[in-house]
Nucleic acid binder design. Structure first.
Lengths: 343, 343
DNA sequence: TATAGTAACTGAAACGTTTCAGTTAAGGCG
DNA sequence: CGCCTTAACTGAAACGTTTCAGTTACTATA
């Protein structure tokens, strides 16, 4: 058995209360002799305070819970998640919080997530990129728990009164389309992301609007929905390139998709950017290394994660009391996949 | 205040013990009427069991602690970490464990890590890629705590009696050198990783040995130490390419480094693989997309993380009692940066 | 010399569960 | 009818801390 505070107290010849006090070192109290005796006992016994017991009485665990709600998505496949988490780690570390990854959530049954998330094991909760039809924010908010700070990352306005941080997908998509239009393109297609993702929906919507604003008629057959999957994008692109009348530029809602399109282009002898301009979204690590390097819209994912964690801590300290929300400005990263159309 | 088990008991008109029992649903006991009443009370009050209290009495938290000990390395910059963590998440999820990321460790003072890690907040500990001079495994092992399962990832034999999983760096480096030798190279250089990393040291050592085994004399001036940093690799490579007598092939201890070398080559007009063959190590996501795609040695990072977590759980259940260790076989991924030398 | 004030410490009640040792009531059996 | 067994439930101790309300033992003040 590990040594407890009682063992320390007994060995040092003081009460448990005293040990607790010197451990939590209230400013300058306690005679140095007592303090020394306690410290000696701690060292001799190899005592480490039990954080669980402390959490129970203090009613805080100094941990922030993170749930990657969007079911299949894994850290290894989705650099966005890793970046967000990285930002959260940095912020939490500054504030003295640990991060607990909730892994045990049955993917099929969201109703059973809430009890698991609300077990007071963590002081605050962050939901990363939940699906658009996710009922979880609602369930959590409705649950009869006094107030556990909650923030959603990667979904704008997931539910009234729920805090959130996200990138401005509208501004990003508009910047992408504008970039293509500025280069002289008018035959522009769009490869949309998965329909269960709010971000993908927003990017599609913004694409349509930006096209309208540029007075370019929409070609529905140039809008393809291909999810995240670069292989589906590959085959969809191949099909598109076989058409007689094809776009001179494509805005892909995700870099993965853009990469798939570029691969298809290479295999079909379509030159990028001479025959086809491409612009992506997200600026994943591979984008810079693509051949040619991919022009894209960068999401400040680490900053987003950082802000999410900082916000939760502010909510815990009471510095923020009303729901918080923030839209981050995306950044156009101009590399080499956009040029003027040659035809 | 959130409802407690007492509130539920009172409302259902039973004792707290009964509520606890129906919550933990011992097989088939309890009349259905009592069970119903308790369930109704739980729903009515929106009660969620407090996991902290449960952890205290059960003496287990159902969480595995993970510490990225190697100080600066972050999830976003180091895909290896993300992959290992991803594997751990999958395994932990299968076994009903959560994962707690220890973020609050002062990077300067390892001696103070042990108390934080041993706070019984987690049931088992995983140290990912500690530096070679890290005293942490020793400190943890020596700490006067009865037995908290511990495993180290990414360092072979970090300390006697400490469990570990790692990739076989020797076999990997040998495979890399063999690949180059097989292609006909004899003028082979090596870009080594950071000296505080055991993996980098092993790869360097294995490089030397493989060269000796192939009876190729070592050229010390073709061995450069450049850490992880692709920019340092870039400038070191630039310097190397300016030399009269330069290698026809380079084995880089990390893909990041290899990518830096390739960039330098491109800028200096050195063609890859015609003028220079390159082989990396790790198979990071960018490797596949490099131009040309990078030949490299793949580390099964997810599998490593998965195994680490599974091993910890086995130790917790008592299925494994003695220190466990496993070396994973690396895989040669042949892409397009290795060809025969032209001279 | 009594009184007040303070510094240093103590004891015990929380915190919200689980679990162990009982207790009660009902049913079965001779 | 009394006794035993069992099912169903209860009460309280325990888990390891923090913290609040005291209790000493001094020292300073009047």
């Amino acid at each position: 058995m590990p040594a407890t505070i009682k063992d320390v107290a007994k060995r040092a010849g003081v009460s448990v209360g005293t040990v607790s006090h010197v451990l939590n070192a209230k400013p300058g109290e306690f005679s140095s002799s007592t303090r020394e005796r306690v410290k000696d006992a701690i060292d001799a016994l190899g005592y480490h305070p039990n954080r669980v017991a402390r959490s129970l009485v203090r009613r805080q665990s100094m941990a922030i819970g993170v749930s990657f709600v969007n079911h299949g998505a894994s850290l290894a496949d989705n650099p966005y998640l890793a970046d967000v988490l990285d930002g959260m780690i940095n912020a939490a570390s500054e504030d003295g919080y640990n991060i607990t990854l909730y892994t045990r959530l049955p993917p099929d049954d969201e109703a059973r997530h809430a009890p698991l998330l609300l077990d007071r094991h963590v002081d605050a909760l962050c939901l990363v990129a939940p699906n658009v039809e996710s009922r979880l924010p609602r369930l959590l908010l409705r649950a009869r728990v006094p107030f556990i700070p909650l923030i959603v990352v990667g979904v704008e306005k997931p539910f009234p009164d729920v805090s959130w941080v996200d990138v401005d997908n509208f501004a990003g998509s508009r910047a992408a389309v504008d970039c293509l239009v500025r280069a002289g393109h008018r035959k522009i297609g769009h490869f949309a992301g998965p329909t269960h993702q709010k971000a993908a929906l927003q990017r599609l919507e913004a694409f349509k609007q930006a096209m309208a604003d540029a007075s370019i008629p929409l070609r529905e057959d140039w809008i393809v929905t291909c999810g995240f999957d670069s292989r589906i994008a590959y085959s969809a692109a191949t099909r598109l390139f076989n058409q007689e009348d094809r776009p001179t530029a494509i805005f892909a809602a995700h870099d993965e998709t853009a990469l798939g399109i570029m691969e298809a282009a290479r295999d079909m002898g379509v030159r990028v950017p001479e025959d086809l301009s491409i612009i992506g979204f997200d600026d994943i690590r591979e984008a810079r290394l693509a051949n040619p390097p991919l022009t894209t819209i960068r999401q400040p994912a680490r900053e987003i994660g950082y802000t999410a964690s900082k916000t939760l801590v502010s909510m815990l300290s009471g510095a923020i009391t009303s729901p918080y929300s923030k839209l981050f400005e995306p950044i156009l990263i101009e590399r080499s996949t956009v040029s003027q159309p040659f035809e």
